[in-house]
């Protein structure tokens, strides 16, 4: 076979090799784009209307390692990874002192204590003290607490 054909085939081969690499890099680019376009509001339910004013009396763990555990809200409840917390969660996404639930008058309040990964009340991040109602779901790391009477 003439040299020139072999040379052309050589360049063709190198070209396809680089097309392969370009496509591999494109897969990564697509992935990054996919993460940026994160919002999928279709699946997020609208925030509950906070009309019914019924205070809970206890919290039940409905999701997470300690699923099924019931906690009384009579005393201030500190949730965190550290030993001093009333509810200790062994989860790297939970801060040492993560959040607290405490009584204020007839109601119970939820407060985030400067956690790294946040506390979520009904899928909204808690930024200030907020009143808890029956049926509310509090998410801390892998754990979800539900407020019940």
């Amino acid at each position: 076979m003439p040299e020139i054909v072999l040379d052309l085939l050589k360049f063709l081969f190198l070209g396809i090799l680089y097309i392969f690499i370009a496509r591999a890099v494109r897969v990564i680019a697509l992935e990054l784009k996919g993460t940026d376009a994160a919002p999928t509001p279709a699946r997020a339910p609208a925030p509950q209307k906070r009309t019914k004013k019924k205070a809970p009396t206890k919290a039940v763990i409905v999701q997470g390692d300690k699923k099924g555990k019931t906690l009384n809200l009579d005393q201030e409840l500190i949730i965190g990874r550290g030993d001093k917390a009333g509810l200790v969660l062994d989860d790297t996404y939970v801060s040492t002192v993560h959040a607290r639930i405490f009584a204020k008058g007839d109601t119970y309040m939820l407060e985030d204590l400067g956690s790294t990964n946040g506390t979520y009340l009904n899928r909204q991040r808690v930024t200030s003290q907020i009143e808890l109602q029956r049926g509310d779901q509090v998410k801390i790391g892998k754990t979800v607490l539900e407020m019940r009477r």
Binding site: A38, P39, T40, P41, Y120, Q124, R125, T127, K139, G141
Partner: peptide, 15 residues
């Protein structure tokens, strides 16, 4: 997927 990321997606980005 980890919960923090899921939560982030569900509420449409970190506030």
């Amino acid at each position: 997927p980890d919960p923090a990321r899921t939560a982030e997606i569900l509420i449409g980005g970190r506030s």
